[in-house]
Amino acid sequence: MVDQTLRQAAAELLVERTEAHAPAKPLTAAGERILAAASALFYAQGIRAVGVDAIADAAAVTKKTLYDRFGSKDQLVAAYLENRNRRWHAFLDEQLAARRPTRPEDVILTLFAALTDWMAESRRGCGFINASVELTAPDHPAMPVIVGQKRWMRAEFLAQAERAGFQQCEELADRLLLLHEGALVSYRVAAMENAPEVAHRAAADLLASWPRSAG
């Protein structure tokens, strides 16, 4: 099972870096509709292409309600990505519960195997990578969410590599992250539909050949 202590620590770090942009109170029914509509439109059409008018119309609310609830389009974008990150974590928990890996290296491979099912429902690739291409301002409210999500993946690879007793765990975590993220980009940009499977096999080969600490 994924190290729950690490996951909690990473989640707390992400909250600390994004809490200024999160809703100040639980979403109302209208807020839920706005977030759902924005999430679907942002992912399908792109962040820049979707205006607040279209989101308000899709959610059956006024623009005033949208701004009252989220403050700005930029903060709504951050909320969309925060919600997507929560969905990704929940999906990984489901995958780990179903596959029941018993060794740390099997946890790593489960994270890769999960990409196949996730991408089947995410035909436009990784929402975080897509957003990073569109959001060039470093101070955009969504940037900490994007960076935090990728740093969490690397931290997870690092933690499991250390648990498995591999040498040069920092280097191994870097390579695993490049494989993982490269699969997402190749799937979207190069129309390489089997990219998750190729990355999974490459990760398995990498782990099989990586040196372990003595004892």
Rank of each mutant, 00 (worst) to 15 (best):
A161H: 08
T18A: 15
R33K: 14
N85I: 03
A30R: 13
A24V: 13
A78S: 04
S186H: 12
A137H: 03
R175P: 02
R84T: 08
R100P: 01
H180W: 05
A36D: 13
G31F: 02
C169K: 00
D106M: 09
E32D: 13
W210P: 12
L6F: 09
A137R: 09
A11C: 09
E134M: 10
E105T: 13
G182D: 03
W152M: 15
A79Y: 01
G31C: 03
R151V: 12
Y43C: 08
K63I: 01
C169R: 08
W88M: 09
E197S: 00
G46A: 03
Q75V: 01
A114R: 00
E121I: 01
L177V: 04
M153D: 10
A58D: 00
A155Q: 09
K150Y: 06
R188D: 01
D3P: 05
L207G: 07
A49N: 03
R7S: 15
R69D: 00
A54E: 14
A90I: 01
L35V: 06
A120T: 05
D68C: 01
I34K: 09
F128T: 02
Q168A: 15
R123I: 12
A20R: 15
C169Y: 05
D57I: 00
A155P: 04
D57L: 10
S213R: 14
R151S: 10
A54V: 02
Q160T: 05
A10T: 03
E32T: 14
W88R: 10
F128D: 01
L6A: 03
L41M: 08
V133W: 05
N85D: 08
V185W: 05
E156W: 04
A38K: 04
L111T: 05
M119Y: 13
E193K: 12
R7Y: 00
T18S: 15
W88N: 07
A40Y: 13
M1W: 10
A199P: 04
Q160A: 12
E19Y: 13
L14D: 13
F166P: 11
A204L: 03
G51S: 06
E94N: 10
G51K: 03
L178S: 05
L6S: 02
S213H: 08
R33L: 04
R124M: 04
F91C: 07
A131S: 12
A59K: 10
D106I: 00
H200V: 00
A190C: 13
V189A: 09
D117N: 06
F70E: 06
A173C: 06
L66A: 02
L184M: 12
G182F: 01
W118D: 08
L6I: 13
N130E: 06
A203G: 05
A90N: 07
Q167P: 05
H200M: 10
L172E: 05
R69Q: 00
T18K: 05
L96R: 01
